[in-house]
């Protein structure tokens, strides 16, 4: 019986330790998330005006060049994931945006598919 009580006490201690560790990790994750969010906001604050400027300009200007640089440095510049880190491979939307291929005409896709055939 005593043995069982000791085991239960040990178990309780272990759970307490585990909870302490969990709380420490939780606090650390929260701190990292906050920092990440802050950095993302800063990136957006810095590059968003350039993106807007680039949208207005028909010819690639310094805005576009900066966006291209941001993209080369490993961040998305597309609307869906602006400012987020990207993996090694290219992103279709970022490439389209950088190359100024935005096709905002809203035409049906049929015509575009037809054009792909030789």
């Amino acid at each position: 019986m005593n043995n069982l009580s000791t085991l239960l006490n040990q178990f309780e201690e272990n759970i307490k330790k585990l909870l302490e560790e969990y709380l420490e990790i939780k606090a650390y994750v929260s701190q990292l998330e906050e920092e990440n969010q802050k950095l993302r906001q800063e990136v957006i604050k810095f590059y968003k005006p350039l993106q807007e400027e680039a949208k207005k300009e028909k010819k690639p200007g310094p805005g576009f060049q900066n966006l291209a640089r941001l993209y080369q440095e490993g961040f998305h510049v597309c609307h869906a994931h602006f400012g987020e880190a990207r993996d090694d491979e290219d992103c279709l939307w970022c490439i389209t945006f950088i190359k100024g291929r935005n096709n905002e005409r809203g035409e049906g896709i049929d015509e575009e598919i037809r054009k792909t055939a030789p």
Partner: peptide
């Protein structure tokens, strides 16, 4: 879902069969 139509190229330099 982002506008997918804008990423579809409309002209090509080469077509192969």
């Amino acid at each position: 879902f982002p506008n997918y139509q804008q990423v579809i190229p409309t002209a090509f330099k080469s077509n192969i069969l």
